[in-house]
Amino acid sequence: MTTTTQAPVRGAAEPGPGGRRRWTEKVLGRQPLGILFAAPYAVFLVAIFAYPLVLAVWISFHDYFFAAPGAQVDRPFVGLDNYRAVLGDPDVQRSFLNVAEFLVINVPLTVVLSLVLATALNAAVRARTFLRVSYYVPYVTASVSLVAVWLFLFSKDGLVNQLLGPLAPNPSWLVNEALAMPVIALFVTWKQLGFYILLYLAALQNVSKDLYEAASVDGAGRLASFRNVTVPGVRPATTLVVILATITGANLFTEPYLLTNGGGPDGASASPVFVMYQKGIEQGNPDTASAIGVVLVICVLLISLVNRKLLERD
C-alpha cells in the first residue's frame, strides 16, 4: 500500500524505485489498494454465495439434520439417497410440474406484453412519465401488500366474481385446482412487467432509426416494421428477459404461501421453493430440501442455456 501512495503516476511507464515495487506489482497488480477496497465485497460474495452453493451440494449428499450451534454430530455420506427420495416424491414432482405450468403462462405473456407496451410507450407523446410510473409501480411494491389486494379481488364473493356474475368459476379462483396456478402466473406477470418494460425501453434506444426509415421507404407498415426491425433489434434484451423471468419463476414462494394459502388447493399451486421450505425447515430435513434446490438450479441453468441457443440462433 505504501508503494502506491508514493507513486506519482498511475501509468505503468514509471519504473519502480527498486525490485520490491516491481515484485508487488507483479503479484498484486498496479494498484494493490484496489484489493483492499474490493475485499469486503469479495468476502461477502464468498460467504453468501460461493460457500452456501458448495454447502448446499455437500448437504444434499449427506444425512444432514439440524443440531444445536457448536454441537459435534455425525452426518454420514449417503450418496444419491436424497436425490432418489426427492425425485420419487409425488409432492416434489407436482411442484416442478406446477412451476412448469407457471413458466409456460408467465414467460411468453411477459415477453409479448412488455415488448408491445415498451414499443407503444416509446412512440407515445403524451403523459409518458405517468404511463411509465403506472407500469412499474407494482414492481416496486411488496408482494405481501399486493397479495392482500388480490386475495380481496379474487375471493369467492370478491369484485372479480361479482363482475363475472354467473360466469364466476366454481370453486372460486384461488381454491380451484385448475385455476390457482394460472392466477399466480398472472399475478407475477402483472407485478414484474414494469421492470421488463424498462429493460425493453432501454434496448429500443439502441435500435437504429435508419432501419425504421429504410423499412418505411420499402413500404412497410407499422406491424411489418415491428416484426422485421424491432423484434430482431431487441433480441439480446429478449434473451435477458426470458432468463430473468425463468429465474423469478423458479424462486416463487410468497404467492403460493399467501395467495393460495400454502400451495393449495391440495398442492395444486405448491412451488419447489415452497416444498423446500416445508421439508427443510418445517419438517427439519435440510438434506432433501438441499437436493430439491440443486435439482432446481440445474433445471434453471438448462432452461437458460436452451433459451439462449434458441433465441440467439440466426
Binding site: L28, A56, Y277, G293
Partner: peptide, 25 residues
C-alpha cells in the same frame, strides 16, 4: 489489481444464482 477480472466475472454470475435456492445452506 490482481483478481479484478475474476471478481467482476463472479459478480455477474451471482446475478443469475437465485437467492431462494441458497436459502437452506
Amino acid at each position: 489489481f490482481r483478481g479484478r477480472g475474476t471478481l467482476f466475472a463472479v459478480m455477474l454470475l451471482v446475478q443469475i444464482v437465485p437467492f431462494q435456492l441458497l436459502i437452506i445452506p
